[in-house]
């Protein structure tokens, strides 16, 4: 069956390629010039070669692309799709790489088979089946690579969003941003405890200004972190509880049995006091002048 397709691809290699490239550009498969002409041509040529070989070697005519004969084609498409995903192509733009091959191929079929309408329909159906599956496969790989990218970025955000800042000798601050779930709490806890060991800190200020909501679960996570820090020998102060959050917490019956301060500055002042330090203004006149 597919031999007619493969023979077409063999005999009219150049024309199909040229028409395909035109169709590809028309359908936006180049992503508005994000891919270079030469690279696109190479990809197309390799794909046509692989497709021809696959069609020639495929035994049955059911158009299944999961067989061994299509392995090269699949691999090639996967590469193309992954690179497209990395370059920021939309799924449509990526899939049109395969789908835009239909038009030149059907054109060629009509010319080859002349007036034999029944056969044209037959062959078109076969070709459509194969190309549709390849197109879907491309989309699938595209989707998968995007998901990989998202997962990696999530991991990076989790890493970045839990910094431990040294405010003074022995005083650490942990500005939390975003919702605290179990996975993040784990990261936060590990970071904080390691920093306590590394810097020999006695006081850790947990600032929750950037935490949008505090429900019972978040409170439990906070308490766990505080308990772990206490076991290591460091005291915790919670700061940055916004008025709405304080109300919500009271209404929910959430109790944080720790020292809490409204602002990070207050917490820092308390921490300094506890470690036996005071803040003194050295140049009264200078600061007044700077303020006005």
């Amino acid at each position: 069956m597919a031999t007619i397709l493969s023979s077409i691809l063999e005999a009219h290699d150049g024309e199909v390629l040229a028409q395909w490239l035109v169709a590809l550009k028309a359908s936006g498969g180049t992503g508005g010039g994000r891919i270079k002409e030469g690279e696109l041509q190479t990809q197309c040529r390799h794909f046509l070669d692989a497709l021809r070989q696959a069609l020639a070697t495929a035994k049955n005519s059911d158009g299944n692309i999961q067989g061994a004969a299509f392995e090269d084609v699949r691999e090639l498409l996967a590469d193309v799709s992954r690179s497209r995903a990395a370059q920021g192509f939309s799924p449509t733009e990526t899939a049109s790489f395969v789908f835009s091959l239909k038009q030149p191929l059907f054109e060629r079929l009509r010319q080859e088979l002349g007036g034999d309408t029944a056969r044209i329909v037959d062959e078109s159906w076969q070709a459509t089946q194969v190309l549709d599956q390849l197109g879907l496969y491309t989309t699938e790989i595209h989707q998968k690579s995007r998901e990989d990218i998202v997962a990696r970025q999530q991991a990076e955000i989790a890493e970045l969003s839990t910094p431990v800042v040294k405010l003074w000798h022995g005083i650490l601050a942990l500005p939390l941003i975003g919702t605290l779930d179990s996975a993040r709490t784990q990261v936060v806890m590990e970071n904080l405890l390691q920093s306590i060991v590394d810097q020999g800190a006695e006081i850790a200020i947990i600032d929750i200004t950037g935490v949008p909501t505090v429900d019972t679960l978040v409170a439990q996570h906070l308490l766990k972190t505080i308990a772990a820090a206490r076991l290591m020998g460091a005291d915790c102060i919670v700061s940055g509880i916004r008025p709405q959050i304080a109300q919500t917490m009271v209404h929910l019956g959430v109790e944080l049995n720790v020292v809490s301060k409204a602002s990070l500055a207050d917490a820092f002042a308390l921490a300094l006091q506890r470690t036996g330090r005071t803040v003194v203004r050295s140049k009264l006149a200078g600061t007044l002048a700077a303020r006005t």
Binding site: Q186, E190, L193, Q194, V197, K224, A228, L231, M232, G233
Partner: peptide
């Protein structure tokens, strides 16, 4: 106390 031990106990 090591961090890992503290986390485990909690």
């Amino acid at each position: 106390m090591r961090p890992a031990v503290a986390i485990t106990l909690v």
